[in-house]
Design a protein around this nucleic acid. Structure first.
Lengths: 218, 218
DNA sequence: CGCTCTATCTATAAAGG
DNA sequence: TCCTTTATAGATAGAGC
């Protein structure tokens, strides 16, 4: 895009990579902003640098949701703040913290006690112990990562399916009504385009578990 | 960016807006992809068009992580199959694995070498080293958990938002049609009641989204 | 000082009206 | 497709720590 054409592959030189990251990141965010404004699109963009630094952009309506969920905060605890819809198993992270603390404490204790009195064989035993301790910590964390992800993905899938179902039902309903009326009508456009005044109602991002309407005008 | 400079404000002409959306959207996604590749960044980008259509990009998928972990295979694969939409970035797990491997190796090496010759002070140095190694592993994993969860929650929020919008649209549509017809009608039952045979498709404790029917025929 | 990040400049590749 | 505008690679300098 500039003085010379470049290959799109990871930039080896660290400094050059950081500079490019900084420049392109800005360009990307600018374009995201422009697109959302020009075309009235809702956009959420999150970038983690290789060093873990976070950058984000969200168009206004989306932002509110995210903020309320306490996302994009570096604070883990805040991540797990109550969100009705996506209640995480934050208890697992507590368990994780606890286990790590215990393991660390145990390690320190082992290493601090009478090491002078240990012979080579005993020291090797200790090595094994430390190794397996590390492995256990690692495994425990892996378990927890997977549980979190499993749970979240599962819930995400539920949402997607529910979404599909709603769409199908809505379409079916519209079609049925059209058929009854014996003509097509415009409001379909309305169906597709949410009314902004309602759409930005942000007093509640949670799922309104609407009543399943099960009566028939009785 | 082109023949004439334009104002960054919503494009009035619908056709022009759609064309611009399409072009710029592609440009944006391309640049996101380039940035993630060039600079080894993790990126998640989601765009909803004004008509509610979803476009997304994530720098890599959770699927890969899971495969790499090779854990919980049977359960997990089933859970994760359906959701293209819920892909996570996790190139970081490779880095994690590497770090763990290195740490473990380093530990073993340290513990295996001339431990007989170390005095208490030196052993305490070693203790510190081991402790900080463990801490680094812990931190690395914590980072990754955080990223995964952040990404998943964020996408979950998107789904919720979309779901909510669909509900609102559906409700408005129903109301509009009823108003036009000036009478109640039967098919609503169909609309409102999800097909039971589908509804019990999973042992799900999840949210069942009913349409909120705000009736005025009572 | 060394290291990381940002700013500035220029010429050119890419975007997009 | 055309062709101007924008984005940005490359280089260098300066700021902040």
């Amino acid at each position: 895009m500039t003085r010379r054409k470049i290959q799109i592959k990871k930039i080896d030189n660290t400094t050059a990579r950081q500079v490019t990251f900084s420049k392109r990141r800005r360009g990307l965010f600018k374009k995201a902003q422009e697109l959302s404004t020009l075309c009235d699109a809702e956009i959420a963009l999150v970038v983690f640098s290789a060093t873990g630094k976070l950058f984000e952009f969200t168009s206004s309506s989306v932002q509110q949701v995210i903020e309320r969920h306490g996302l994009l905060s570096s604070n883990f605890d805040r991540l797990n703040q109550p969100s009705l819809e996506l209640q995480l198993e934050s208890s697992t992270s507590a368990a994780l913290r606890k286990e790590i603390a215990e393991n660390t404490h145990e390690l320190r204790k082992l290493m601090g006690e009478e090491l002078q009195e240990l012979n080579m064989k005993e020291l090797q035993e200790l090595e094994k112990l430390l190794g397996s301790g590390l492995r256990r910590v690692r495994d425990a964390k892996g378990e927890i990562v997977l549980k979190e992800i499993t749970s979240l993905k599962w819930k995400g899938s539920q949402m997607i399916q529910e979404n599909k179902r709603l769409k199908q039902m809505a379409n079916r309903q519209v079609q049925t009504l059209e058929l009854e009326r014996g003509q097509s009508f415009e409001p379909i456009g309305d169906f597709i385009h949410p009314d902004p005044s309602q759409d930005h109602d942000s007093s509640d991002t949670s799922l309104k578990l609407g009543l399943v309407y099960s009566t028939r005008f009785s």
